[in-house]
Each structure stands twice: as C-alpha cells, then as structure tokens.
Design a protein around this nucleic acid. Structure first.
Lengths: 160, 160
DNA sequence: GTATCTGCAAACCCTTTGCAATAAG
DNA sequence: CTTATTGCAAAGGGTTTGCAGATAC
C-alpha cells in the first residue's frame, strides 16, 4: 500500500506506527512495567497525531475515543521519556510542551516570540560542538538542545 | 583603583557594579518604571552574589539586610529580563533558575544529570549557526540557548 | 498630589500523590 | 493470585494577583 514511500522520512508510512508501538511495548516489558490499554492509547495518539503537544491537548484528543485520566498521562510521561518516545521541548505559560521523538530526526527549534509558533531546523555542527566540548570537559554527554528565539518572517512583516 | 584590570572580564572590578546598577536604573527610567529601593536591592544582590540562582536563594540572601517580598521579586524578574540584567536558564524541580547576564560573556551550559551541577563553556560556532539558520528561515533572531546534558567527570568516576 | 509599587494573603494552575477499585501477567 | 496501574479527588508548590497602605516623582 504505502510501501512505495520508504525513503520519505518526514511523513510516516503506516508500518512505522506498528513498529514504534511495538518498540514501546518492548520497552515496557523490558523494564517490568505493564502494557496497559491506557499506555497504548497514549503512545498511539502521540505517534499518530502529535509532533508537538502539551498534556492538555493530549488529554482532549484521547477523550472522545479512549479517555485516559490526566493522572495516568502524567504518570506515563516519564516512561515515554525513558523509552525515547518523546522529549520535553520547552516551557510556555507555565506548562511543559513535548515532542514526539520516535521516527523523527533530531532537530532544533526556532521560537517566534510574537506568534509563539515553533519552526524546526537541523544543523550538523551542533553534534560536533556537543562532542568537542564534552571531550574537552571530560563530560559524558547524553544529548543537547539548541533553540533560537526572535521574530518569524510573518511577524516581522506584520509589525512594520 | 581597579583601573588596571580593564581587560579582565571574568572577575568584575568594583567599578562595574556601579555602572551596571546605573544601566539598570536608566532602563527603568527609560520605560517609565520607578527606581525603588527594593528593585535596587534585588539588582545589586544579583550583580554581586549570584551568577546562577533561583527565586528562593535570592529571597533568602536579601532577607537579612534588605528584605524584599517574593511577590516583588517575581514582579521584578520580567523587568530585569527586559533590561538584559538576567536570563532564564533552566527549569529544575519545578522552578526556574536564572543567571546574571550583565558583565558576563555569553556562554552555554553543560548539566550533570547526576549531581545537577552546571558547567559553562563558550563555542563560537553557535552564534554562526544562529545567524545562518535565521537568514535561511527569514527569522529575525534575538538570542539562542545551547545546552548539553550528561555525566560530569566526577560523576562518571563515582559510578564505576 | 497622583500613579506606581510594596507586602500580605489568597488564588491559580500545573503536576503529584493517597487510596480503593481494577486489570495485567 | 499477586502486584502494578487506574481514576478520582485532594494536596503540593511555585508563581500570580487583588487590595490597602506606602512611596517615587
């Protein structure tokens, strides 16, 4: 069906959802955590619908078909972080925003201070900086985050 | 008095405190905000004692000599951010950590996930990445943040 | 004199937690 | 069966806010 889009890594073919769900289940088992329908619903919703999201969006999007309490969502987040399914991205208006990691390339963010939209980009130098500085400082690095803030193209025009 | 240390930008000669306080007062006036003794005490405490801090540390360090309520501290923070005196650095254990910006070079952070210490470094490439990506995306950038996390040298040894 | 700022205490709001019922293995 | 997980509602805890009195200008 969608086998002819193998190289397209931005829009996920269906098969990847199955694989990624399986990876998450595997992770849970490997840690002795249980595979519950709530955890599956949360993970599936993120993998299908949410590149960037906060707890409330996730909660609301689950509610119609497979309601899960916020307590369970909050309790699932550390597990999903640990499994590498998602990562914290930034805090805005006093609550955390997350992004899906499975099936996406590592990237950095541009944040518009005016419209609060997030734009993504990749910059290969960053991994090199991470490596070099870590070596230099005797650090064993596990990841990095780079963020640029300012005004996006649209908001610059608007403000003139 | 300390005129012979002009080039030393890491440890601040006394004169800089006066200048930096003056810059902050100027900023307040320029915006129509008032120069109050509370705002001066907060700014002076940060400039003198706090490269990295959170609200509680600031509150406690002010209390003995020039007590200022937390409400006033929280109300002063956006002003100090706006003036460029301080910047948000990271969220830890549910509360924000700040750093002094006046009189210090821009730098990035290494965070140890084990001992939670922060190490600083400079990497000139980062400003170039900021510039290049902004140009590429039509973004008008106003700043960037780069952070590496992992295990510091001491914590790696300890864990073996 | 007037508008802004301060301190206090209460309100906010996101997140965490205790507990009894439920479900996974 | 046993123990982890869920949902609920209450607690937690950093931050914000309303208000009356104090203060900058």
């Amino acid at each position: 069906m969608s086998e002819d889009r193998v190289a397209d890594s931005l829009f996920e073919p269906e098969g990847d959802l199955v694989e990624e769900m399986e990876a998450f289940r595997c992770f849970l088992k490997s840690k002795g955590y249980r595979v519950t329908k709530e955890r599956e619903a949360i993970a599936e919703s993120i993998l299908k619908n949410h590149d960037h999201f906060d707890v409330d969006e996730l909660f609301l999007s689950l509610r119609p078909k497979t309601p899960v309490s916020k307590a369970s969502i909050y309790r699932a987040i550390p597990l999903m972080k640990e499994s590498g399914l998602l990562a914290e991205v930034y805090l805005e208006n006093g609550h955390m925003h997350y992004e899906r990691v499975y099936g996406r390339e590592h990237h950095s963010h541009l944040r518009c201070l005016n419209c609060h939209r997030i734009f993504e980009f990749s910059a290969p130098e960053l991994a090199q900086v991470e490596k070099r500085i870590s070596r230099q400082e005797g650090f064993k690095s596990e990841g990095h985050k780079f963020e640029i803030w300012g005004l996006c193209a649209a908001c610059q025009t608007e403000k003139r």
